[in-house]
Each structure stands twice: as C-alpha cells, then as structure tokens.
Amino acid sequence: MIKLKKYWVCCAVLFLVLGLFGCASTANKAFQTDESQVQLRSIQTRAFDTSDKEKMMRTVISTMQDLDFIIEKADLTLGSVTGTKFTNNMVVTMTVTVRPRGEKQLLVRANAQYGIKSVEDPETYQDFFNALGKSIFLTAQKVD
C-alpha cells in the first residue's frame, strides 16, 4: 500500500512539472524558432531568374489564390503579399515577399503560420515553390 502511494505521488509530481512547463509561457515564446535563423531562411527562400517584380508578384498572388488563399494585403513597393486560408477549421496565414537580388534575379521568401504555429517544415514550403515555379515557368533555385 505504501509503495502504491509513492507511485501516486510520483505521478502527481510528474503532472505538476508538465503543467508548469506548459505555463512557462512568456513573451519570448513568440520569438522562438525551432530551426536556426539561417536554416529557416534557406527553407523559406528561393531565387528566380527574372527581374520583373510586378509579374512575379502577380504570379505569387495567383498561386496563392489557386491554393485557396484570400489576399488581404499587397504592396508593390515593399514587394509583400499577405493572405489567409481556412483549412480543417484552422487559419493559415502567409506572407510572401519579393525583392531583387542583383540585376537579374528575384528572391522570393514565404512565411506561413498554421493556427498559432510557425511553419518550419521544408516540404510545405517546397510545395508552395513548386506551384509558384509552375505558374511562372521558371525553376525555383535554392539559396544559401
């Protein structure tokens, strides 16, 4: 019987510890990333051999529409497009930025959030860049 009690205490402590960890949320949780900054940048960025920013942005927008996004904001000067999509009763928000890289290339970077999670999975971004590459008839090149 005593041994049993011990186990219960152990269980209770375990739960408390788990609970405490769960509640250790502070502002810096919003700034945490699982991948390193450099890795994340390379997952989210591709280079395209074109300097036509407007065409690229229009293609980004139409690709996002094909993926069921609503375009909420866009700015040609800033090169940014922000959209929202609903899937499985969850909100996916994504910002895509387009900026020049040298004279002949454009860098496209996508940041997606799924609910309250930042998406850091390379495959998901690859899906997006595949779709984008198909629409603009150019190959997305990985960057370092």
């Binding site: 186990y7 269980c11 769960g22 994504m94 609910g115 998406v119 999975d121 998901t124 899906d127 779709a131």
Partner: peptide
C-alpha cells in the same frame, strides 16, 4: 498504474507538440 501514467504523460507531450499537418500548400 505505471503504464497508465506513462501513456497519459506521453499523450500530453504529443498534444503539447502538435504541429501543422503537411500538404496544406499543395
């Protein structure tokens, strides 16, 4: 009891780390 608590804490851990499903940008 031990196995039960293991299962519960494992499932808690899993719930805590729930990540986005794949393929939603396809």
């Amino acid at each position: 009891i031990l196995s039960l608590s293991l299962v519960i804490s494992l499932s808690l851990a899993v719930v805590g780390c729930v990540s986005a499903p794949k393929g939603f940008l396809k």
